[in-house]
Amino acid sequence: MVAERIPALKKTDAEEGTSPRRRGGKLLWIVFVLFAIAMIVLFFRSSLSRISSIQVTGTVHLPADEVLKAAGVREGESFFFPSAKELERRIETLKAVQSVKVDKRFPGKVEVAVKEYGEVAVELDASGKTRIVLSNGLSVPASGALPDKPILTGWKEGDERRNALCRALEGLPESLLRDLSQIAPDPSTAYPDRIRIYTRSRFEVVTTVERLPEKAALLSEIVENREPGRVVLLEADTYQPFSAQNAPSQGDS
């Protein structure tokens, strides 16, 4: 008698560990993921993901196109990349820029707020052209009316004492800074950073770059309340009016 082979029984869904509901859930999830990917691709290819306008504010000496060149972005390029922080880092490499804030406003608007180093002085370059000196020591071409700032004379470009002077001038009261007419280096063995200042109110001041910020309040008081004279602000502070220097001594009478 020939043995008859019995076919294997088909496993039920419960035995296979997957129910029709679960298979349907997986399929729905796959469809959802594919749909999301398609929408993301379409979005990044649409105009909504592109820069529609770039506004640069706060520039005085820097042309807006130079700021955009440093940022490396143009209208029509990706709105999301590079990031705002990366754009700020790029723009801050410009020497005239003290700080910058980049604000992205969806859809497509990029606002760049630049703060340049402040104007603290003017000077003449080697060709005799007037330049404006910023508080970090950078000199830029003058355009239009000159600021009411002191003239730097006798300084060498790149001199660290000159740069330190520019930083010191930034911290002076605006009223005092406007009164300073000319500042020249006047170094000595004891005071390598000594400077000589002439004011519009006709004072002659001898001090040092390092001492200038701490002596600013005293200097303001003198030029506002005393007659013109010579002021020395070093280890000891002295003031002598020019009228006393020119007065005849008792022996001359």
Rank of each mutant, 00 (worst) to 15 (best):
R131S: 07
R5G: 03
R200M: 03
G25T: 10
V206E: 14
P20E: 07
S46G: 11
R162Y: 02
D252K: 13
G128K: 07
K115S: 10
V133I: 10
E235I: 08
R162N: 00
F79S: 00
S127N: 10
V120I: 14
Q250E: 06
N225G: 06
L234T: 10
S249Y: 05
A84P: 11
P7A: 08
S53M: 06
F106T: 01
I151Y: 13
E214F: 07
R21E: 14
E111M: 08
V73A: 06
T59A: 08
P82D: 07
N225F: 09
L212F: 12
E116H: 05
A244D: 14
I195F: 11
S53R: 13
Q55N: 05
E111N: 07
Q250A: 07
F106N: 05
T208M: 06
R196D: 06
D252Y: 14
V2Y: 02
E210F: 04
L233Q: 11
I91Q: 06
E92C: 09
T57I: 01
F32G: 09
T57Y: 06
V100Q: 05
W29N: 03
C166W: 09
P192I: 04
L169W: 07
L180M: 13
L172Y: 11
R105H: 13
V205Q: 13
G24L: 12
R162T: 01
V60D: 00
E16Y: 10
T189R: 10
